[in-house]
Structure formats: C-alpha cells, structure tokens
C-alpha cells in the first residue's frame, strides 16, 4: 500500500511537470525554438504566485489566472520583440540568446527576492483524503487537477478556436501558412505566449508542493527537456505522459534507492528513449 501511495503522489506531481513541459513542447513544435529559459520562466511564475500571496493574500490556486496572463504577455512580447529575429539562425545562436534571457531572469529574481527559499503558508497544506488504504494529499490533488484542466484548456484552444487551428496549420507547414495569408509572426508570438502561459499555471500549482528559490531554474529546464523528449517533442499527450512518467520514476527511485538518485533515473530514462526511440514514446515516427 505504501508503494501505491508513493506512485499516486508521483503521478499527481507528474501532472504538474507535464503541464510545464507542455509549454516547452508547444513552443518547439510550432516555433522550432528550444526554450532554454523554460525553467527560469517557471521560477518566475512561482515567484509571481508568491507575490500575489504576499501582496494580495491570494491562494496560489486563485493566482493562476493572473500569473498565467502575465506570463502569456511576457512570452508574447519576448517572441515578438526578440526571439523572432533568430528563428532562421543557427542552433548555437538561439542557444546563446535564450541563455542570456535565462541569466537575466534569474539575476532579476536574485536582485528582487534574494537567494533564500520562499514558500506560501496554506491552511490546508497537511489535509489529506483517505480512500480505502490510499492516502491522498489535498494539495497534490488540487495541483494535479489544475494541471489537467490547464492541459485540457490548451488542447481545446488548439482544436476549436480559429487562432488555434491556424497555429496548427502553421506548425505543419510554415510556408503554406504564409501562402494562405496567415500572419506567421503573430501566430508564433501567440504560441510562445501560450507556452509561457502553461508555465505560468504550472508554476502556481508547483508552489503548492515545493519551495522556490532562483537557482532551481536550471533543474526545471532540464526536467522539462527530459519530459518532452520522453513523451515526444511536439506531442501534447506525450508531454503529459512524460511528466507523469518522470513524476512516478522520481518518487519511486527517491523511495527505493536514494533521493539524490532520482534525477539519475530520469536521465537514464531519457538516454534510453533517445537511443531506442528518438521520436519519443508518443511521438510520430
């Protein structure tokens, strides 16, 4: 039963990982940019939720719309004003650009909040539900529910709205999209904004579960990379699936082997998948 509890906890945390990675996947799938500042954006969102809590007394769950919108606008502006000029440039230039952005985000957070860890105090932090022999943490359940809702909203956007459909067309065939008169620049900016919005929501939800400090950004970037490659870069269900897989693998290896080994398992998984099935578990061949 202990195993079941650990697996379920990992699964729920993994859903939040999945939402974060979904942002990376969407950006890469459409704009073809690897967002090396992804973890930094995640940490930025977490601090946003901290601020909303400290300043407005908002629960991180209620801060989701506010932070998500802010991150969307930020992502939109970043793509429109800066990254768009580097779309056709070599990989290493894009890498340097996003590294510079990442460094400045972390530095700004350091200047604003200092290097110490922060968190939010929640009245329900230790509440849990008992289902049979299974123990469910309330915060984890809420976070996972939020993540699944977020992913569903994004999926609905791509499926049912005009802009969403245009973005999909753009991802399939950029040249064709231009030919039929789609404003590719704007669609890229919207996409980057949406990717950032995923991170915004994921950041608020993650704050329910863990503390935040500026230097953990790189860990989140790597985590997001692992997840999207496991699931298949550009595949939306793949990102969620990858997130859950990594969540469970982290929880189990932390329990069975040693907590410090948990990311080794994730990297091991990543190496295995890249070598055996480079398109990812749910990616198209």
């Amino acid at each position: 039963m202990l195993y079941l509890n650990i697996i379920v906890a990992g699964l729920l945390t993994g859903a939040v990982y999945g939402l974060m990675a979904l942002g990376l996947s969407v950006i890469f799938g459409v704009v073809r940019i690897v967002n090396f500042a992804h973890g930094e954006m995640m940490v930025l969102a977490m601090y946003g939720a901290c601020l909303a809590n400290a300043g407005l007394g908002l629960d991180p769950l209620l801060a989701v719309p506010l932070v998500t919108l802010t991150l969307f606008l930020l992502g939109y502006a970043l793509q429109r004003g800066l990254i768009n000029r580097y779309i056709a440039r070599p990989d290493h230039e894009q890498f340097l650009l996003l590294l510079a952005v990442a460094t400045m985000i972390t530095a700004s957070l350091l200047m604003g909040f200092g290097p110490d860890a922060r968190n939010v105090q929640l009245g329900y932090a230790y509440d849990s539900y008992q289902i049979g022999a299974m123990l469910l943490d309330k915060v984890r359940l809420l976070a996972a529910a939020g993540a699944v809702l977020g992913a569903a909203a994004l999926s609905g956007f791509f499926r049912f709205t005009r802009t969403g459909k245009s973005i999909r067309a753009c991802a399939d065939n950029q040249f064709g999209a231009q030919v039929v008169g789609l404003d590719v620049k704007r669609l890229y900016a919207v996409t980057f904004g949406l990717g950032a919005a995923c991170v915004g929501a994921a950041g608020c939800l993650m704050l329910l579960l863990v503390d935040v400090q500026p230097y953990i950004a790189t860990d989140y970037t790597l985590l997001a990379f692992i997840i999207v490659i496991l699931g298949g870069l550009g595949s939306m269900p793949g990102a969620l699936f990858g997130g859950i897989l990594v969540g469970v693998s982290e929880a189990l290896s932390g329990f069975l082997v040693e907590p410090s080994f948990k990311s080794a398992f994730s990297f091991g998984l990543l190496i295995l998948v890249l070598l055996v099935r480079p398109q990812g578990l749910l990616g198209r061949a």
Binding site: L96, L97, L99, A100, V101, A102, T103, M104, T106, A107, S108, L109, L110, M111, G112, G114, P115, P214
Partner: peptide
C-alpha cells in the same frame, strides 16, 4: 546579489 549575473546576461544579449 544578482547584479553581476544581470550584467553578464545583458552583455551576452
């Protein structure tokens, strides 16, 4: 703290 990294990032940019 952070000023160094900020300028470093700005210089890279």
């Amino acid at each position: 703290s952070g000023l160094k990294q900020w300028f470093y990032g700005a210089a890279l940019l």
